[in-house]
Design a protein around this nucleic acid. Sequence first.
DNA 1: CACAATTATGAGCAAATATTCAGATCTTGA
DNA 2: TCAAGATCTGAATATTTGCTCATAATTGTG
Lengths: 205, 205
Amino acid sequence: MTPDQRRIQPRKQPRQVRAELTRQRILTAAAHVFADHGYAAGTTNRIAERAGISIGSLYQYFPNKDAVLAELLTRHLDDGSAAAAELLTGPLPGPIEEVFRVFVRLTVEAHRDDPHLLRMLIEQAPRSNELLERVGRLKRTMVGYTRDLLDGHPEVRLSDTATAARLVIATIELAVHDLLAEPDPIDARRLEDEMVAMLTRYVRG
Amino acid sequence: MTPDQRRIQPRKQPRQVRAELTRQRILTAAAHVFADHGYAAGTTNRIAERAGISIGSLYQYFPNKDAVLAELLTRHLDDGSAAAAELLTGPLPGPIEEVFRVFVRLTVEAHRDDPHLLRMLIEQAPRSNELLERVGRLKRTMVGYTRDLLDGHPEVRLSDTATAARLVIATIELAVHDLLAEPDPIDARRLEDEMVAMLTRYVRG
DNA sequence: CACAATTATGAGCAAATATTCAGATCTTGA
DNA sequence: TCAAGATCTGAATATTTGCTCATAATTGTG
């Protein structure tokens, strides 16, 4: 009914250590519950139960269920952005094969924790425009960066680098998600080798 | 409470034409509603409303909401399997590039109808063990087939065809899903060309 | 130790939604 | 034509679930 200015911020800042600890417990539990049951079936009561706290405590730090998911996604994006930024600060290796290896390894690392959770976040979170926008922006940044890389690298022989950049990013992200997930997760090292081979041969023409 | 032997089968077999027609209406409406609102927000009442029938009629043919989704997924899998089987009956083109083109085109076709619905199905359905198993089996079949193809084809130069087959299948499925979906869907023809190029160069070594 | 601030509790409210069922309506077959 | 079976209806009920709030327990502080 109201203009729906939904709160995303915690309603209360933790001031004691136990409060911060409770917050952590909630987030950890939420990650597991969402990963196991999906967003819709991941009820706040279930999260509280798994965290070993009461439902009331959950609502002391998160104004609603969406906010819990938002916080999880924000954390993941922050971690990923930070790792990528740090990596891109230093000099990239010359051979395109090694560049791809760096990319793939970064993606594998980012998802080693909880592939299920991440799929959930990406697929379900888009209820909030703010988060949707944020994910989209990050993706576009990566595609743009990759396109520049392809355009400027001497080994690369491609006509349509715009399409190629999108394909490369999508392939890395999605295939890593999928193939490292249950059931029957693939060996990370083998996946890395094959994926790097595929991308390298592709862009060399 | 009970051992939860949830019914998936319709509770009643249609015996008159109007009954079968009602069933179809329900499924068509459900496809649209799920695609538009997602699974959780796609309520049974909304489905009935869109189908122009009463909620009671819906429950005459489907024991619960999950069963409606299950039927939609089953149909899609059946369609996909049938199309693939028909294709693999005839002789495949010799050049590996053309084989991949056939694969990619098949996947693109399968998703042209309703990409939204399909994402929904793939993401939500895996709550039911039965359907999860079915999807897994189909996937394994395709991977196995692809591996045989890679092992037997004279153009192919790969050491680890087991990993390669999984990578190829995952890449085609996922990238097509993702890149053809909103927002900013990629041109289907360009996607096909680039993806075929990538896969071909990969397996040729 | 006393007192206030912070944190935790969980029964229960309200809204949304899945599902039922008794009765109305339609179709079929003799 | 007409009864029996099939189908449809939708208000009513059952269930789920996000969330509140009065109260209790804990912690920090002078």
